[in-house]
Design a protein around this nucleic acid. Structure first.
Lengths: 336, 336
DNA sequence: CTGTTAGCGCCTTCAC
DNA sequence: GTGAAGGCGCTAACAG
């Protein structure tokens, strides 16, 4: 293109080429030329010159001038998880609908990275920040508050900003209810239920466990702590924990509540080595949804968090009217 | 913090608070104060004031001044795919290592979105752009070229910029070789192999099919076109195609080459409804890797593209020394 | 209807 | 050792 090598074309180049002033160019290019009743001919000359010179706004400069970057920020642990991947895509869709440029950054569940990335995004002057899947978001909330940038905690709540979280307890209760029905119909013992995955003391796990226990309690069953295999997130841990249970009890649980996708992967890793009859004695339910779950030789019920609604609520939580620290709760959906 | 409500603190605020000038503040805060031999005391006063006022650089302003945004851009179809998710994380890691702020945007395989997002990222003055998984990247390459922004095509090649692609043909050949060995050992017929998924005419599919055919040809087998079920990407299509094959032949293929993760999902959707003996007659291989594959009641070999190497090569391709349009080829890794 | 002017916040010579 | 000045590209008043 006809461009002086190094530099990109600016509105001044266009102004020169079209025999107008930079401000006129700016007005025309921003579509507000009707409002200023700029001569049609002038407008045409300008847009034509812009096209010819291959002009492209410099949003950095515009952002500086307007103190509006047009950037929407979100951090999350990683994309390598269907839930967060969906969340990221829902975020981008909502951001684009608002003419914002989405910046999503994964932080690998490392606090140092979370802090660094947050600082960088604030320095880039994102207009707001969604903090997803961070167990202790308060320090990040504080950074945002200090920078005067609105933020919302998503998936895991914090006290420093509005939070949008799923109804983990209610969801787990419903999911467990389905497992109970299935197991009962097969003559399985409710006392032989197992909760697999997650970490004691963490928000999501604790709430899901509570829902799990509650549903069983409603059926007169109070499990002992040995039925909670809160073995952490890695698939291998879940595999080993389930294997240990199997060795101990000589069979799979009658009902298996699986905390998350990663644990699900581990569970399948173990059960896939078992003969079909062993599997038939067991029903399972997974919190958070993986498409592969529907395809397994296993009676699985899945529960999915509704990322679309979560994101819509997160954007709503940005408006001053909802700037409270109360978690906005939403209900996940049971799939099968 | 002690900040005049609306405005964020600037170096001028610090200058005032520390009794210095803005330029001194800038020097100190950028670490180059040693070079200018600024008095230790002054420097300390300034850093202290900055801390106290909760200062945070405005990268927008710095970017404008230096014509360096510090932004690294990448577009990809979606996160909801282990390959691209891994790619995105590898990209972010490399970008951060270079003190760049990664901006990854998913474009949902829609050309209009690809063009829009590219324009936006160029307007944000990203320092370079990686274009991943775009079948016809040339128009995007041209946009970048016009803006003077280096770009690299990743995963799918284009002629307008350097490309980093896996050795699809070689990888498929090796993968097929493994299937052939397994099938032969079981007494399966090589003529009863099936290629499932992908789209004829697309780069990745065509190359993988070529490798598939080549490996079989080396064993004296030339499949007829009926053994290529290039049914597209949606899981449901793959499921239906495999189901049709099963109905037609009365059994699963002896060797099943699956083009991609999505097709794999569909294949499992069908096979999970089959009795174990039907499965035992079949070995499968999946191009692109899903952790669940390792867990399935199915003899599956997986091939994974090495995203770390791909990203490293992509960054290398940015340097002028390699600014040619020749695809940089790299070898994927067989997993199991 | 269009041009002039004055910054947005920062960095970098260049004087002092 | 430090401060003053200019300008990155753009926009919004305000003059004409």
């Amino acid at each position: 293109m006809a461009r002086p090598a190094g530099r990109k074309t600016t509105i001044y180049d266009i102004a020169a080429a079209a025999n107008a002033s930079a401000s006129t160019v700016s007005l025309v290019l921003n579509g507000s030329w009707a409002r200023y009743r700029i001569k049609e001919d002038t407008a045409h000359r300008i847009t034509e010159a812009a096209r010819r010179l291959g002009y492209n706004v410099n949003l950095t400069a515009r952002g500086l001038r307007l103190s509006r970057s047009g950037l929407a920020g979100m951090i999350l642990p990683h994309y390598h998880n269907r839930f967060f991947a969906d969340l990221a895509e829902a975020f981008e869709a909502e951001a684009r609908r608002r003419d914002l440029c989405p910046i999503v950054v994964s932080t690998q569940r490392e606090e140092a990275v979370e802090l660094n990335v947050t600082r960088t995004l604030l320095a880039q002057r994102v207009e707001f920040l969604f903090i997803a899947g961070v167990p202790r978001p308060d320090p990040l909330d504080r950074l945002c508050a200090a920078a005067g940038v609105p933020c919302v905690n998503v998936d895991l709540p914090g006290s420093g900003a509005p939070s949008v979280v799923s109804d983990n307890r209610g969801g787990a209760k419903r999911l467990t209810g389905i497992l109970i029905d299935k197991a009962t119909r097969r003559g399985g013992s409710l006392a032989a239920f197992l909760y697999l995955g997650g970490v004691a003391g963490e928000y999501a796990t604790d709430n899901r466990v509570a829902g799990f226990m509650e549903a069983l309690h409603a059926h007169g069953v109070d499990l002992d702590p040995g039925c909670l295999a809160l073995c952490g997130y890695p698939p291998a841990s879940a595999r080993d924990a389930l294997s240990a249970y199997f060795d101990r009890c000589g069979r799979l649980p009658a009902g298996l509540f699986i905390n998350s996708i990663a644990a699900f992967e581990g569970a399948i890793g173990f059960t896939s080595g078992l003969p079909a009859p062993a599997l038939d004695a067991c029903v399972a339910g997974c919190f958070d949804w993986d498409p592969f779950a529907a395809c397994l030789p296993f009676d699985v019920t899945m529960l999915r968090q509704d990322v679309g609604t979560m994101m819509r609520q997160a954007f709503e939580a940005l408006t001053p009217a909802r700037q409270d620290a109360r978690p906005l709760v939403m209900v996940p959906a049971i799939l099968a």
